[in-house]
């Protein structure tokens, strides 16, 4: 496995939010982390990014133990993260947002920017507009494009479809499939479990901070108990 998180336990002070969680993802694979509200999905992602203090567990990227790395160092190694909210620079233009995404890279980024506009044509015509002026779906595209600018090997998305319309949600999922084809590992936390599982290779279902179920997207979708409990019948 390209990215492995083993036995993650941690939380905020005394309160444990995640306990013995395991996740892994390969390049060219979409893996969803699902579960009810407050199950610790976002916290698990933060733990993998080094934004949550771990009591135990290891995070391994490409055979390298990065458990003790801080967030900035993990990003330099090729982990990109799209937060759920405040995931764009509203006072910067779309173009500048993308430039900031490639802040750590020293090579010419013009081609990379063009590549992003090919992937997200909707934001190309807005490249000199302030990102704060865009619609919800376009903002989300800018956010994902920004995260892709530093050539990540793994992309983590925290609820990329939160608060967008069903049409836009489909659009974003299609983009995520396109990104997967670039041989990038994709790990996402999702609320729209049904839709997310349809495009996912595998899924993890978290309940009260622990791994409850794990399987391929189809397996989870077809399991009657999971359907009843988590997918609304």
């Amino acid at each position: 496995m390209f990215f492995k998180a083993n036995n993650l336990s941690g939380g905020y002070g005394e309160v444990k939010v995640i306990e013995n969680c395991n996740f892994n993802v390969n390049r060219g694979e979409i893996v969803s982390i699902l579960g009810p509200n407050g199950a610790g999905k976002s916290s698990a992602m933060k733990a993998m990014l080094g934004m949550l203090k771990l009591e135990s567990g290891t995070v391994v990227l490409d055979e390298k133990d990065i458990s003790n790395f801080n967030t900035q160092d993990r990003i330099k190694l090729g982990i990109s993260f799209v937060p759920q909210v405040n995931n764009i620079f509203t006072e910067l233009t779309v173009n500048e947002n993308l430039e900031m995404g490639a802040f750590t890279s020293s090579d010419d980024i013009k081609d990379k920017i063009e590549e992003m506009y090919d992937l997200f044509p909707a934001i190309k015509e807005k490249k000199y507009q302030f990102a704060g002026e865009l619609s919800g779906g376009q903002r989300q595209q800018v956010a994902i494009a920004r995260a892709l600018m530093n050539n990540p090997s793994i992309l983590m998305l925290d609820e990329p479809t939160a608060g967008v319309s069903p049409v836009v949600m489909q659009e974003i999922f299609e983009h995520i499939i396109q990104i997967k084809e670039k041989n990038i590992a994709i790990l996402m936390v999702e609320q729209n479990a049904n839709q997310a599982l349809k495009i996912s290779d595998r899924g993890y279902i978290l309940v009260t901070g622990q791994n409850a179920y794990h399987g391929t997207g189809q397996e989870l979708l077809n399991d009657p108990e999971i359907r009843k409990t988590f997918l609304g019948g």
């Binding site: 967030t71 900035q72 990003i75 330099k76 993260f81 937060p83 405040n86 995931n87 764009i88 620079f89 509203t90 006072e91 910067l92 500048e96 430039e99 900031m100 995404g101 802040f103 750590t104 920004r146 530093n150």
Partner: peptide
């Protein structure tokens, strides 16, 4: 630009690798 980015959204600036 990175100064403006940092002023606009500190967390995202850190996530973008801005020092």
């Amino acid at each position: 630009k990175s100064m403006r980015a940092y002023s606009n959204n500190e967390d995202l600036a850190l996530l973008s690798g801005i020092d």
